[in-house]
């Protein structure tokens, strides 16, 4: 055990400040353990959101020394012994209290996306659908998402430009990608991707991909293919002409 220094944000929607704390750090501890120890010893009312403590639920997203991370999967031995560790709530969303941010906006975005609509004619007589593993590999990658919203937190469009009214953010771009690439899905979401979800806002800086704790290739495997589908639909001159002449189809 050794004594280490921490600076943790304390405050609410009206404002707050970084407060200094000291606590002992033992072998194998992660940042969330430190937060809990300070909470139990010195600050019973310090708010932090967490659940599984194993990187599976995506609740404990915070910014540690400026880097967006899951507190439960960030080990203390990543930092130098004499380094002061600062912990702040994620910044793209309003602060509720201390380390807890109000992420309800994300839940509203999810609701706007048309749900899965399978082609029920593809069911066999036993009621089973047939899909090959290679055809679902790529959507399974997106379904690893634990909704920690770290990608939403670093997306320039949401963070720096606060364009939450016109872009749903990387989390929901891959949600759409997962539905659109599903072998059984019949819903056409491409018009909404362009007009409602704001696919054009993403300028592919890959910051979202960099912070994803599940290592999902958000940009390359999700957002870019979806942007291409929009381009194919709306900006391919031959397809545009065909559509004008023949009428629209998916």
């Amino acid at each position: 055990m050794e004594l280490r220094n921490f600076r943790i944000y304390r405050g609410d929607s009206d404002g707050g400040e970084m407060m200094d704390y000291q606590t002992e750090v033992g072998k194998g501890m992660v940042v969330l353990d430190v937060i809990h120890r300070i909470q139990a010893e010195k600050a019973n009312d310090m708010a932090v959101r967490w659940n599984c403590k194993a990187g599976k639920c995506g609740s404990c997203s915070v910014e540690i020394n400026g880097k967006p991370k899951l507190a439960c999967m960030t080990r203390m031995n990543e930092y130098d012994d004499d380094e002061t560790i600062s912990i702040r709530p994620i910044r793209s969303f309003p602060i509720m209290r201390d380390l807890v941010a109000d992420v309800s906006w994300n839940y509203e975005q999810n609701k706007r996306i048309a749900p899965f609509k399978p082609d029920i004619t593809k069911k066999d007589s036993n009621g089973d659908y047939h899909m090959m593993q290679k055809d679902v590999d790529r959507i399974q990658e997106f379904r690893k998402c634990i909704e920690c919203y770290l990608c939403q937190n670093v997306c320039h469009v949401l963070r720096d430009h606060d364009k939450k009214d016109i872009f749903v953010g990387p989390r929901f771009m891959i949600r759409v990608a997962g539905l659109d690439m599903h072998p059984l899905d019949t819903e056409d979401r491409i018009p909404d991707v362009k007009d409602e979800y704001g696919s054009g806002m993403c300028n592919i800086t890959r910051c979202c991909t960099d912070v994803c704790p599940e290592h999902i290739q958000i940009t390359d495997n999700g957002i870019i293919p979806i942007k291409e589908r929009v381009v194919d639909r709306y900006y391919d001159p031959i397809k545009w002409l065909t559509r004008k002449l023949m009428g629209k189809s998916k």
Binding site: P115, F116, P118, I120, G127, D128, Y129, H130, M131, M132, Q133, V136, I139, Q140, R143, L179, H182
Partner: peptide, 23 residues
């Protein structure tokens, strides 16, 4: 079994067998 099939109908993507069924 019906509850699992129903999940697939609602969008769950289970691992597949070689024949393309839920593994």
């Amino acid at each position: 079994p019906d509850r699992v099939r129903e999940l697939e109908e609602w969008g769950a993507v289970f691992d597949r067998t070689k024949a393309g069924l839920i593994n």
